[in-house]
Simulated assay, not measured.
Amino acid sequence: MKPFCFADGNIIDSSKAQIHPMDLGLIRGYGIFDFFRSVNYTPLFLEHYLDRFIGSAEKTFLPLSYSREELKQIIKELTDKNDMEQGGFRMLLTGGISENHFSPAEGKLFIFPESLIFPSEEKYNKGIKLLSLNYIRPIADIKTTNYALSVWDSMRWKKEGAEDVLYHHNGYVSESSRSNFFIVKNGTVITPDKDILLGITRKHVLQLVDKVEIRPVTLAESLEADEAFITSTTKVLLPVTQIDQHTIGNGKPGPVSMDILKKFRILEKEMSL
């Protein structure tokens, strides 16, 4: 975490940010957040992240007492104050202190600038392993703070040498715990169309692809894919070379995945100039 954050309507020392112990964000795990990266002092795809954050507040009935322009100004001030050439910003809106300890109330807005830890180069070169998990994330189209199952299950991933999970239900896959999921078959990029967070990185990856299908994707066809990968703000694009005990394709990152990653890196540079 960087030295300065936004809390209680002001930019303050990050170590002094506080939340009431009866906030729904703490006692019920109810709140929303979003996370974006800054490159060369420029927040990447900021308008898209603000669209999602503002929309999530509306959908979860959480009052957001700051306009888009006010949020952008706060982010600019935090960038300058923390000398944020590179890093991440975490926007968090809590569920608030509710009279009945259950219904959404007026919560607190926090914006925390953070240092980033990216996956190792080895993971991009060799690919990663996912473990399948029968689960659909609650209100999946909203980036809520409810990560209880995946945090608990992450101890299993470590034991089995996996990077993350692949959620599936009734034979269909949806997403990873913190990433969108794609497969490649015969040169076509295919990604699930429902029970997912509409990722910002996902959105821009799809714009870089010529042959794409957005539709239901079965777990069975995922295991038979030529290539697979996940995308997220902090991972960008990570090749998936194993799901459970099944090797994907030839067990190496595929040419379609690596070409998309290359194009996205070029897009990042153009956006940060």
Rank of each mutant, 00 (worst) to 15 (best):
K2M: 13
K2A: 10
F6M: 06
A7H: 09
I11C: 04
I12T: 09
D13R: 10
K16Q: 13
Q18C: 07
I19N: 03
D23W: 07
L24E: 02
L24K: 01
G25M: 08
G25P: 05
L26E: 00
R28I: 02
G31T: 04
G31H: 07
T42C: 07
L46V: 12
H48N: 12
Y49E: 07
D51I: 04
F53C: 11
I54C: 09
S56Y: 14
S56C: 12
S56L: 01
K59E: 15
T60P: 00
F61Y: 14
Y66I: 03
E69F: 05
E70T: 10
L71K: 12
K72E: 14
K72D: 00
I74H: 09
D80W: 01
N82E: 12
M84W: 08
Q86S: 14
L93C: 10
I97M: 13
S98N: 03
E99K: 15
E99I: 08
N100R: 07
E106C: 01
F110G: 02
F110W: 08
I111V: 11
I111W: 03
S115L: 05
F118L: 14
Y124I: 03
Y124N: 02
N125S: 11
I128Y: 03
L130V: 07
L131H: 02
L131S: 01
R137A: 01
R137N: 05
P138S: 07
A140D: 04
A140W: 03
I142A: 05
A148K: 08
A148W: 04
S150Y: 07
S150K: 11
R156C: 00
W157N: 13
E160L: 13
G161R: 04
A162T: 08
D164C: 04
V165W: 05
L166T: 05
H168P: 01
S176A: 15
S177A: 14
S179N: 13
N180Y: 06
K185E: 14
K185V: 12
N186I: 01
G187P: 11
G187E: 08
T188A: 12
V189L: 11
L197K: 07
I200G: 04
I200P: 03
T201V: 14
K203L: 13
V205S: 02
L206G: 04
E213P: 03
V217C: 11
V217E: 11
E221H: 12
L223Y: 15
D226S: 09
E227P: 08
E227N: 08
T234Q: 08
T234P: 01
T241E: 10
T247R: 15
N250V: 11
N250A: 09
G251Y: 11
G251Q: 14
K252V: 09
G254S: 09
S257I: 02
M258W: 02
M258Q: 15
D259I: 00
L261C: 05
K262V: 02
I266V: 15
K269P: 00
L273A: 08
